[in-house]
Design a protein around this nucleic acid. Structure first.
Lengths: 224, 224
DNA sequence: TCCAAGTCTGTGACCAAGTCACCGAAGATT
DNA sequence: AATCTTCGGTGACTTGGTCACAGACTTGGA
């Protein structure tokens, strides 16, 4: 345990030494296998998770059993929206699922509360994280309401592509990510393929004309 | 100043006396006329507002100049999402507009920060408020993605109706509230009228068959 | 009082997106 | 090899969003 995990989080590196050790002592490093439900509706969250490795997908399951993707937590970020419910002793209405193997720091309610009280730096860290997520949610809503599907799909593909330019996801998965139907994804992807922007095979999409996709996304954002 | 405003907020009434007086001393009661911009994008919020009277509408203006309604703050609630940005020194991306004359308590950044540090009760108040708003945002997203417009309009009409069962709003306003186009609202309202649920005149909708509207809303929520 | 300008609502044509039903192809299982 | 499951493709249809335009109502001068 050479360098502390704390330094992986920009907002926390400024913590004074005493708080640092308190945080380290009062928290715990956990690992979770891929595709595991980390938290779910109807459960009071009792740990704040800070992701060291991997990604977590947060989505809401609606009454009908369909799912809306809300946001994705990457390494170096925190599942901070759970904390509101944590401190408020309220249920969280969204569910979090590890997409990969996940390594994270779990900060129990008690430590969290103490640190929020004691440390201005920690407080700022928490509220900054909040404000990020909330603005993300706002832009998500904006996107859903006003942005065309082809643009949203294009930009999501660019986000999800691995280093070799391939997206590993079925049409159905892409559908729930964007809150739309599988058929719509299929149709749009065929169109992208026709334009020579992507190649498809079962369960994956290879981006072979990033330029086209990027142009599409840019053109939609360059509003008149 | 007989009864303190503090007792209007359920979560705050349990505050110990010393914190109460600190809160009262460190904050200020303000009034804002109707239809005034209270906060806007690109501005760091420096006060947390607790509404005593009136309502505030929070919406996001998109690049194209269109607006999406996000949520409405009523008396007894707080514009709490601004506080994240407040403490994080970040810009708020949404705008808040008073719909009526508004009386509110303004808690400056400094007082807020002190109280969050000092008082567990205040902390819980803040985080509870957060969690409410966030869950609201989640259900909003869910609604937008999965719920039919007629259902959403019906339930919004029921919410917005005054004591005499009249909604004072133009079709255009209802459109932005629901994130849809005016024409869609017009068409749906004509349909409601055809069914004898509402009567219309310029700038207002009178609900004359609440039952029908309520049935529509209920039937949509009673998912199989 | 009457006109002009602005605001609000209605409508038809069209396009984008979501839904439904169904099918065949590609992997996985045995 | 036979079967099962998952994935992707397609056509027909409905709902919702966009555009263009017209008529009705309101308001504020002239």
């Amino acid at each position: 345990m050479d360098a502390s995990w704390i330094d992986k989080f920009k907002g926390l590196s400024r913590l004074p030494d005493d708080i640092r050790s308190e945080l380290e002592a009062g928290s715990q490093i956990v690992t979770v296998p891929a595709a595991t439900e980390i938290f779910e509706p109807g459960q009071t969250a009792d740990n704040l998770l800070l992701l060291l490795e991997g990604t977590v997908k947060v989505q809401q399951r609606s009454d009908t059993g369909r799912e809306v993707f809300l946001y994705r937590v990457h390494a170096g970020e925190s599942c901070v929206l759970t904390t509101a419910c944590m401190l408020a002793f309220e249920d969280y209405s969204a569910e979090g699922i590890s997409e990969t193997k996940v390594k994270a720091v779990a900060i129990p309610r008690k430590t969290f509360d103490t640190l929020v009280a004691k440390s201005p730096v920690f407080r700022e860290f928490v509220f900054t994280a909040y404000s990020r997520r909330i603005t993300d949610l706002f832009t998500l809503i904006d996107d859903i309401v006003f942005q065309r599907m082809d643009v949203r799909l294009a930009s999501r593909l660019l986000e999800l592509a691995d280093s070799s330019g391939t997206v590993h996801a079925t049409h159905a998965v892409l559908g729930t990510e964007l809150g739309t139907a599988r058929e719509v994804v299929s149709r749009t992807l065929s169109e992208f393929q026709r334009r020579g922007w992507v190649e498809q095979s079962r369960g994956e999409v290879r981006l072979i004309g990033r330029d086209g996709l990027e142009r599409l996304v840019r053109s939609a954002h360059a509003q008149v």
